[in-house]
Write a protein that binds this DNA or RNA. Structure first.
Lengths: 222, 222
DNA sequence: TACTATGCTCGTACGCTGTACGATAGTCAA
DNA sequence: TTGACTATCGTACAGCGTACGAGCATAGTA
C-alpha cells in the first residue's frame, strides 16, 4: 500500500501532494480561497485527512512558501557576481508574480524553510566568492532581498501586471483619481507614464541595476 | 444627541473612533486578533453597530492602512532632497515597526487612501523640485518605496526588533540552525554578526544611503 | 400634539472557518 | 488470531463576517 502510494499518480496522499495542490489552489483562487475543506475537496479526500500530513494550516503555509523558494533559480556559478545576482533576482520576480499570494504570507512566517536556507546560502556563497567581506556580503544579501521582496510587494498592489494592462486602464481609471488641482505632481507623473508606457519588468531591471551598481564598491571594502 | 456624540469621549461611535480603536487592537493582538466582535467589545458596542460606520471589514482595513500613512512624516521642504527623503523614510520605518500588521495588509489593498495619495504627492513634489525629471522622479519614488516597504517586510520576518534582542537569541537560536557543514557561508555570516552586533535601524540607514546615492545621478538625466 | 421619517443600535441566524476527538478500516508482525 | 499501527474521515464546537430586520430616540412636518 505504501509502495502503491509513492507510485500512484491520483490515489494516495502525501505531504508533497497536499502542499503542491495547496499552491495550485492558491494560484487559482487566492489565499482567501484556500481552506482545508476546499483543498481536501481538490484532492478528493476528507478535510481531516490532511491533518495526517500537516500539523496545522500554519505548517501548510510554511511548506507552501518553501515550495515557492524551490522554484527560484539559484545564482549561476560561472559568471560575474552581478550577472548571477541579476539572474536570480529576475527569477525571483517571475516566481513571485506567478504566486502573488506568497509575498503576503511571508510577513507572518518567521522561520525559513530548507529551500529558503539553501537559497540564502547560495547567494551568500556567490557574494563571498566575488570578494565581498563577510559583513559586506550580509549587507548586500539583505539589500538585494529587500529590493526583490519590496518590488514584489509593491507590484502586488498594482491592479495590472503588464505594460498593456497598464495602458488599458491608466487613462480611464488612474488619471481621474488624480485631479490636477489636488495632485499636480502625481497627475503629471501618471500622464507621463501613460505617454511613455510603463512595464513592471523594465522597472524591475532599472532599479535592480541601480542597486547592483551601488553594491559594487562594497566589494573592495571591509 | 448628535452633538453629545461629537463631544463625548467615551460614548458615541464614529468612523474615526472605530478605525482608531481597530488600529490599537491590531497593535495589541495582531491582525488575527482583530475581529468585528472583539473590536465592538473594545468599543462597548454590539458587533453589528460597527457596520453603520464601515461597509465591511475590508473597508475597515483600508481605513486602518490610511491611518498608518497619516502617521508617517511628510518630507520637509526646507532641506536638500536626500535629507528630506531620508527623514521621511526613517519615519516610515518607525511607523511600520510600530504597526507590524500594516505591511502584511498592504499586499491585498489595491487602491490607495487619501493620506497615502497625499504622501505620494509630497514625495513626488520634493523630487521634482530637486531637479528630477518627471520620469526619473517616478523611478526614484518607486525605488524608495520598494526600499522602505521591502525593509519593513523583511524586518517583520525577523523574530527580533533591536540589536539587544538579536544578541540575546543569536547564539542560542540562530547558529544551531546553521550547521557549518551544510551552511558554511551562512554560519560564517551569523557568527560574524553575533561578534559585530546587528542593529536593524543601522542596517536601514546603511541601505537607504546606498539607494539615495545611487539615485543622485538620475537627477541630471532625462 | 400626533405622525412620519431618519439615524443608530444590535439580537438573531446562516454559512463558512480551523481543528479536537474518536470511530473505522486496512496492513502487518507475532 | 491477536494486537499494534497507519491512514481516513464524520461529527462537533467555537469563532468568523455579515444579511436581515426589529427596536428605539430624535427631528421635521401637519
Amino acid at each position: 500500500m505504501r509502495k502503491q502510494r509513492q507510485v500512484a499518480s491520483d490515489a494516495g496522499l502525501s505531504k508533497q501532494r497536499v502542499v503542491v495542490e495547496a499552491v495550485l489552489l492558491a494560484d487559482r483562487e487566492g489565499v482567501d480561497g484556500l481552506s482545508m475543506r476546499r483543498l481536501a475537496g481538490a484532492l478528493g479526500a476528507g478535510a481531516m485527512s490532511l491533518y495526517h500530513y500537516v500539523a496545522s494550516k500554519e505548517e501548510l503555509l510554511d511548506a507552501m512558501i518553501d515550495v515557492v523558494f524551490e522554484e527560484i533559480e539559484l545564482p549561476p556559478e560561472e559568471t560575474d557576481w552581478q550577472s548571477a545576482m541579476r539572474r536570480r533576482a529576475v527569477s525571483a520576480r517571475q516566481v513571485l508574480a506567478r504566486h502573488p499570494w506568497a509575498i503576503g504570507l511571508m510577513e507572518s512566517r518567521t522561520s525559513p524553510g530548507p529551500a529558503h536556507l539553501r537559497h540564502r546560502e547560495a547567494v551568500t556563497a556567490c557574494l563571498r566568492r566575488a570578494g565581498f567581506s563577510v559583513l559586506m556580503a550580509t549587507h548586500a544579501n539583505w539589500l538585494l532581498d529587500v529590493y526583490v521582496y519590496g518590488f514584489a510587494l509593491q507590484a502586488a498592489n498594482l491592479p495590472f501586471d503588464t505594460a498593456d494592462e497598464f495602458a488599458d486602464m491608466a487613462e480611464d481609471v488612474f488619471l481621474p483619481q488624480l485631479p490636477p488641482d489636488e495632485f499636480p505632481y502625481l497627475n503629471e507623473s501618471a500622464a507621463a507614464l501613460v505617454a511613455a508606457g510603463y512595464d513592471p519588468a523594465e522597472e524591475f531591471i532599472f532599479g535592480l541595476d541601480l542597486v547592483l551598481a551601488a553594491l559594487e564598491p562594497l566589494r573592495a571594502s571591509a
